[in-house]
Structures are given as C-alpha cells and as structure tokens.
C-alpha cells in the first residue's frame, strides 16, 4: 500500500500577467500511493485544477519535479510523453464540453484506442468498446448516440470510459461530479469506487465539495492560494485538523443535526491576490491565530505526526 505511484516535488506554475506573475501553483509537494485516492480540496481559484493539468503536462510547469512510477515526467520528450499518456488519464468536470459533439459515443470511446493504435482489427476494437461501456454501466443501445442525445450522467460515463480505455494507472478526476445532479453524483461516485476496487486504479480527486471528498478519499490535501496547507489521512484530517484554514473549512460543512451546537469559524477578508504574493504564510491576513513570526517567512509543509503534514508555524510548534 505504501508504494508511491506519484511523487511531486516543488511543483510550480506561474502565469505571466500584466500586473506580475500569477502564482497559480506555488511550490507544492505531495505523493499518491498506489491504489489510493488523494482528495484535493480548496476554494475556486486556488490552483486545484491547474495541479491536475500539470500532472498530465497539459500545462507545462514552470518548475518542479513530477515522478510517476519513478520516471521523471518532466524530462520526457514529446514521443515518450505520448506513450506515457496511456498511464495517466483525466476526467473533466463538464461532460457537455469534454465530448466532441460530432463524435458518437462509439467514436468518443474509441478515440484513445485509435490514437495509440491498440487494435488493428475493427472487430476487436468494437468488442473492447462494448466491454468498456459495460464496465461504466452504459446500455449498449446508446452506442450510436451523439452526446447531445444523452443526459449528464451518461455523458460523464462516456468520459470515464474514454479515460479507462487505455488501462491507465492514475486518473485525475477534475471535479467529475460537480456538474451533475445529486442523485447522479452518487451513482458516478459509486461507479468510480467500484472501478478502483476492480482495476486497482489510483485517483487524484479534485473537488470543492468536502462531503464528497470525505466519502471517496483515503487521504486529503487542502489547498489555499496555490499552496498545500495540510495533508493527512481522511479520518485524521476531519477529526483533528491542524491548520486554521482547514478548521474554518470544516466548520462550514453543514451537518444535518440540530442538537450539536456547532461553532462556525467565519473568516474575515477576502482571498488575497495570487499575483506576486509576499513571502509569508499565505493565510496570514485572514488567520485568526496568527503571531508575529508568521509574517516573517514562508511556511513549509512539515510532517508533524506520521502522515499528517501541515504548513502552519503555530501547529508545527
């Protein structure tokens, strides 16, 4: 279980803007064990999706190191990278935009197989597509349909089937359920969990929905303004959050009970601009337990307990 499939060190992505460098992802480290699900949470604009795309090199990182199965992804040439893409796939948030409206379901699922010329025999290809459709729970009769003829849940299933086509090791799930109805969300989440069990997949699950993340993840990483502020096993993180931001985040999750008197931590102020942020704790201006030391230097992610990392000076002490 502890074999690391993905290791990321000092990953950075700065976007040049007119006002300066936008630190979308700033020096983050994390790892994902083989067969587990790492949930990546944070508010919108904190760099979660960028992180996912960086992992696939859909966006070129500014700096840092990504190792998948011990191979350095960053050093791969274009040809090698194309071959390596088989191992990492992505499922997008919006199933309406992620399928070409001119491709039928068959053509969409077949596309990755055709790109990599997996099958030469059209019969085998057809068999494989049917097989994939069955795996993701799509009725065979929709095979000739176009995306606009399907509902959101089915489209997302097509997206998942595409991602599975090449037997990947790692799937980046970029908010795969946030565009769907709640009832369909549950179906898709269960499907994802079953697939993981059957195929031993590893997931990076990006979401802003804490309940969903709690449900599906083995470990959770919390992002704030381009940095990972806390990373721990799900149970540990939800029971014993150390970073003030995580605490505030968790206190905002609605609980369907009225007998518990919950203390909601309300943060003041807005998320500061990610353009050229000062070298101090990113959370400094909104933190409710800051001290003088916090403003002086950037905080590093430190392992305070086994498998519990936190980037807060107070908590580290």
């Amino acid at each position: 279980m502890s074999e690391k499939l993905v290791e990321v060190h000092g990953l950075k992505k700065y976007f040049p803007t007119k006002k300066g460098l936008l630190h979308a992802v700033d020096n983050i480290d994390f790892y994902i064990n083989k067969g587990e699900t790492l949930g990546l949470v944070g508010e919108s604009g904190c760099g979660k999706s960028t992180t996912g795309r960086l992992l696939l090199r859909l966006i070129e990182p500014t700096g840092g190191e990504i190792k998948i199965e011990g191979q350095d992804v960053m050093k791969m040439g274009a040809k090698e990278m194309r071959e390596f893409r088989k191992k990492i796939q992505i499922v997008f948030q919006d199933p309406y935009a992620s399928l070409d409206s001119r491709f039928s379901v068959y053509e969409s699922i077949e596309e990755p197989l055709r790109i990599h010329k997996v099958y030469n025999d059209p019969k085998e290809m057809e068999k494989r597509v049917f097989e994939l459709m069955e795996t993701v729970g799509l009725a065979p009769r929709v095979i000739n349909s176009f995306p606009h003829e399907l509902d959101g849940g089915r489209r997302q299933r097509v997206g998942i089937a595409r991602a599975l086509a090449l037997n990947p090791e790692l799937i980046v799930l970029d908010e795969p359920v946030s565009a769907l109805d709640v009832s369909i969300q549950a179906q898709i989440l269960n499907l994802l969990q079953n697939l993981q069990k059957q195929m031993g997949l590893t997931y990076l699950f990006i979401s802003h929905n804490l309940s969903v993340v709690k449900h599906i993840s083995d470990r959770v990483a919390v992002m704030y303004l381009g940095k990972i502020v806390e990373m721990a096993e799900t149970e540990e993180l939800f029971k014993n959050p150390l970073h003030p931001y995580t605490k505030a985040l968790l206190s905002a999750v609605p609980t369907p009970r009225i007998d518990i008197d919950k203390q909601r931590i309300v943060l003041e102020g807005d998320v500061p601009s990610p353009i050229d942020p000062p070298a101090r704790c990113r959370f400094y201006n909104r933190c409710y337990c800051r001290c003088e030391g916090c403003a002086e230097q950037d905080v590093q992610l430190v392992e305070v307990k086994p498998n519990h990392f936190v980037a807060c000076m107070q908590a580290q002490e």
């Binding site: 696939l56 992620s98 790109i115």
Partner: peptide, 17 residues
C-alpha cells in the same frame, strides 16, 4: 480551448490528429 481538445491531448493525440 475546449475540453474535448484537451481530452484528446491527454489521450496522447498529435497536433495533426
């Protein structure tokens, strides 16, 4: 800029494809 082009890229498609 659409997701399906990005998805094709993620699947390993070349520019010509």
């Amino acid at each position: 800029k659409t997701d399906f082009v990005e998805a094709a890229k993620a699947a390993g498609a070349k520019d010509s494809w």
